[in-house]
Amino acid sequence: MKIRYTYLLHTLALYAVSTWVAAETVEVKVTNKSNQPIENAVVYATPTAGLSKAEKNAGKAQVDQIDKEFIPHISVVQRGARVDFPNHDRIRHHVYSFSDAKTFEIPLYRGRPSNPIAFDKQGVVELGCNIHDWMSGYVYVTDTPYYAMTDKRGKLSLANLPQGEYDLRVWHPDMKGTVEDTNQTVRVSGGQTVNFQLTTKKRWVPFRAPAAGGSSYR
């Protein structure tokens, strides 16, 4: 009898563990109101039950400066991530952000700054260079490790999601409204496709090309 109880307990435990670690994939598509795909949209899934300790694993990231541009133009990191800003140009850059999610400044530098910047608050961090005003980049900071960016077809896969209920949200620099407005609560059980349709606005960056009317640069 004792053996039968032990067997039953082991079976239940294995079932519980297998249920907990079952990883699912959610397919996401992001389009605008005209059903055109939106590239580089950040989609992230936050468990409604909260994140476990193991899921709070920030990691590292890198935003390069190449030919006086931020590469990649948009990055996504988990809160607490330390981000490097290596300068691959043969001139100095002066990288800064005044965003609520992170305010920082790396005055004129070449190469790799000695200390990465820790992004410790969720939200959008807009990057700029004080020498080259047209340089524009974004780091989106999420709480959750479950995030991805859309490809040219506006598609992405959120993989390795444990089964459960999640808040799915999307962010893109061209979108109108807030990320909270995009929230979709989804019970992840496998094989789902979630669609987001964003209202977009025009985003402006200073004209980099030479202009007959003159330029503030130089």
Binding site: F207, A209, P210, A211, G213
Partner: peptide
């Protein structure tokens, strides 16, 4: 009226 051709010319 200027039209940018890429990043470096117009």
């Amino acid at each position: 009226l200027g039209y940018a051709i890429g990043q470096h010319s117009s």
